[in-house]
Each structure stands twice: as C-alpha cells, then as structure tokens.
C-alpha cells in the first residue's frame, strides 16, 4: 500500500515540476496561467491521493479526499478571476497570438 502511495506522490511532484517550468518559460500572462493552473492543480490532487493510500480509510484519509474537490473549485475559480482581472487591467496578449474576440465586448 505504501509503495502505491509513494508512486502517486512521485507523479504529482513531476507534474508540479512541469507546471513550474511552464511558469518560467512561456511568454505572456495568459499562457503562464494556463500551464501553471492545470499542471499544479492535478499534481497536488495526485499527492493527496497518495496520502489517502498511506492513511487508508481513517481520519486522515477522509480529510484528504474532502480536500480534493475544494482544491479543484478554488483553483479554477481563482484562475478565471485572474484572467478576467488581467484583461480588464489592460495587459495585452502576447506577440504570438492570432485572434482576439473579447476586444469588442470589453470596449462597449
């Protein structure tokens, strides 16, 4: 049981590493937010699943299961708010972008 939990924690940290590399490498705010939110959220969920395997169905395991949906909703809603706030603040899309449909709505 502990071996399975350990493998889940390793996978989670690998995904966290990918997310953080994306946070450094990608060119503008929106792309950074995309890579970081997806990878880091699923990586942390994987770590919590590993914790469930360590504890079994006791006090700690149930807590880890409860933490997963809270983490999902908190991370997605926070990312949504940050994207909208950054756009209204006036940060342009990067040089590589090809399309912007949201411009007309925001102007009016």
């Amino acid at each position: 049981m502990e071996i399975i939990g350990f493998i889940f924690i390793c996978i989670g940290i690998l995904f966290n590493l990918f997310g953080c590399i994306g946070l450094i490498r990608l060119p503008d705010v929106y792309n950074r937010l995309q890579s970081a939110t997806k990878c880091v959220t699923l990586g942390t969920c994987s770590i919590l699943i590993g914790v469930v395997f360590y504890y079994g169905f006791t006090n700690g395991g149930i807590k880890a299961i409860v933490a997963i949906p809270i983490l999902f909703f908190a991370a997605t809603v926070a990312a949504h708010a940050l994207v909208k706030g950054a756009y209204i603040f006036g940060i342009k899309l990067g040089d590589k972008s090809v399309k912007d449909d949201y411009k007309d709505v925001h102007k009016s």
Binding site: I21, L93, S97, V98
Partner: peptide
C-alpha cells in the same frame, strides 16, 4: 508544449 524546445503555441481568445 512546455518541454518542446520550440514551444508550439498559437494563442488567442
């Protein structure tokens, strides 16, 4: 997309 050296991205809204 992150690990590819040329970063194949073409973003937009």
């Amino acid at each position: 997309r992150v690990l590819h050296p040329a970063m194949p991205i073409k973003p937009g809204i």
